[in-house]
């Protein structure tokens, strides 16, 4: 039995598959691909798959991963991406399959490529929007309302902006690195919503997760 991790992209129509539904889509793809994977042996037996880091509804990603256990030790892992892609919707493409290196608990941060624009066209120019966003991120503190298990809480997210880089071009685009993982996870929308509120403009944000990292900035593998 091998612990296997598949890496996949999720975009297009598949951005709108929730985490729970992604689980169902993957289970059916595995069923259809006839991959022989380990099943739970309890009361309600089912194929066992786990996801390292859930992706928010509406986000695209270039670096999703899913773990399962292959029963046959001689299984050719390099053939798995193609086998699974034949069984998946267009918007989910597996591009790599390998034995898992890190534990999901090792994940510390994630990088998002973000593009923001006003919901109503022409309300603000992209250059002005970029400017305001830059100003916003250079504030001494950024207080946002974060939903926690104990209700809404005011949190200063400024220290959590691990890296930030504006991108050249016509649109207001930037990369943002934020803490990620099971202990502390900051959703980029938390910042974007707070920004939208501060400028008083309804914004649309196109968000793609482009990297998931462990301690020291190494790629999660």
């Amino acid at each position: 039995m091998k612990n296997v991790r598949v890496f996949y992209r999720k975009d297009g129509a598949c951005k709108y598959i929730s985490h729970l539904d992604t689980n169902r889509v993957m289970l059916r793809a595995i069923g259809k691909s006839r991959l022989n994977i380990w099943r739970t042996e309890g009361f309600n037996q089912h194929a066992y798959i786990t996801f390292a880091l859930p992706l928010s509804l509406g986000f695209a990603s270039e670096c999703e991963s899913m773990d399962f256990r292959i029963l046959d030790d001689d299984e050719d892992l390099s053939a798995i991406p193609e086998r699974m892609n034949a069984c998946l919707p267009e918007g989910i493409r597996v591009f790599r399959c390998a034995e898992a290196v890190h534990k999901p608990a090792d994940i510390e941060s994630a990088k998002y490529a973000v593009q923001i624009e006003p919901m109503n066209e022409n309300e603000i120019s992209f250059s002005e929007l970029s400017e305001k966003w830059r100003d916003f991120l250079s504030l001494p503190e950024i207080i946002v309302q974060k939903k926690t298990k104990k209700g809404m809480k005011d949190v200063d997210v400024k220290p959590y902006v691990l890296a930030f880089e504006m991108k050249e071009g016509e649109k207001a685009a930037f990369d943002l690195t934020l803490p990620a993982g099971s202990t502390l996870n900051i959703n980029p929308n938390l910042l974007i919503d707070a920004f939208a509120q501060s400028v008083g403009i309804e914004l649309y944000a196109d968000i793609t997760r482009v990297g998931i990292y462990i301690k020291g900035g190494e790629d999660f593998a």
Binding site: G12, A13, Y16, L57, G58, C87, P89, E90, M119, Y204
Partner: peptide
């Protein structure tokens, strides 16, 4: 789905209803 709805999808419940792209 039409490009025009992209911005609206996250304003509605269950946007997966409107985008197609199924296997």
């Amino acid at each position: 789905y039409p490009e025009t709805i992209e911005k609206l999808l996250l304003k509605v419940q269950k946007p997966g209803r409107y985008v197609g792209g199924e296997h």
